[in-house]
Amino acid sequence: MAKTVLIVDDHPSFRASARRMLEADGYDVIEEAEDGAAALAAVQRLCPDLVLLDVRLPDLDGFEVARRLLGASGPTPQIVLVSSHDSTDLGDAIGATGARGFVPKSELSAEAISSLIR
């Protein structure tokens, strides 16, 4: 059964490309969210297997969204963080969130995501 995915990013062009890429690789993109608050609500409502989460969002940052999602009671989604910055700009913050991993947007591919999740 295909893994369900929530894409969280405030740029529509990026969301569209990411959706196309994931769906081509067999993922089921069930929702897109453009900010942190919408992401939290969507996860509570839809319980996706995977959240592809941008670090820079207009309200909460992606780290905070990840902390809240993983700190919630009940089943929690796997989270992969993405950003236009590379990992050297973000430092230890990625590991501290408990996310499965981080992929720079410039290197984003279905294989890169699959290698990080169970």
Partner: peptide, 13 residues
Amino acid sequence: QQRLMALGINLRL
């Protein structure tokens, strides 16, 4: 930058 990122994903696909 976002458009170029999206373009990169599209080209890989």
